[in-house]
Every structure is written in C-alpha cells, then in structure tokens.
Amino acid sequence: MDTNILEIIGGSIAIAGSIFLLLGSIGLYRMPDAYNRIQAGTKASTLGTILSLLGLFFIFPSWFGKFMVLILFVLITNPVSSHVLARAAYHIMVPLTKLTQVDKWKERREIDESRKAHLRKVKIQKEGE
C-alpha cells in the first residue's frame, strides 16, 4: 500500500515536470527574439527535466545513482550551453527585439573599440615620426 502511494506521488511529480517542459517550449514559440527564447527555454527545460527524474526516483528508489548522475548533468550543462549560445548570438549580431530597454554591453564594446582605434592611431603616428 505504501509503495503504491509513493508511486502515485512520483507519477504526479513526473507529470508536473513534463508540464514545465511544455511551458518551456510554448515560451520558445511565443517569445519575440533569440535571447528571450533562451531565457524561457533553458529555465523551464532544466526544472522540467529535474522534476521528471525526481518523480521517477520515487517510483524506482533503487536506481538512485542513475537519476542523481542525470540530475547533476542537466544542472551543470544547461546553463553553460545557454550562455555559449547567447554569446554566439550576440557575436553574430542576432537583433534584439524592439522592446529592449538598455544594452550596456554594446556601450562597453563601443568604448573599448574607440579606445583601441585611438591607440592604433597613436602608434601609427609614432612610427611615422
């Protein structure tokens, strides 16, 4: 009887996880630009997968190790891949949506570029002398 209740709790948690996965992909569909899509997709898919695996752990407690490895793996790699993708998107200049309020990174990069250009100019002038 006890195991039966545990199994039903586990199944419900797994369904909650899969609902989060569904919400993540709806967000992926609805969001206006690549960065907001990364926001919705990564967060929801991380918690969705973790909850699903946790629910399955209630059903088969003897597989503890496998579930733990998968949970740790998802928790560590998912933020990394989202960060790498976002940086690539910014470097190949995927446009930000029109709703965007500020872009501090662009300001910083412009300052850096102008400083580099200035240094180059100074160097060329010195070599000319």
Partner: peptide, 26 residues
C-alpha cells in the same frame, strides 16, 4: 529565423528527450 533560434530549439529538444528516455526506461 536565425541559426541560433534553431540551435536553441535543438537544445530544448535534446534536454526533453533525456526526460523522455527516462520515462521509457521506467
């Protein structure tokens, strides 16, 4: 529209597939 969007979709699909394979194994 951009390749990055496609790669994000691929990422979300592969993470969902981890959960899917775990369900199937149970």
């Amino acid at each position: 529209p951009s390749p990055v969007d496609r790669v994000i979709a691929f990422d979300v699909m592969s993470v969902s597939s981890i959960a899917l394979i775990a369900f199937i194994s149970v």
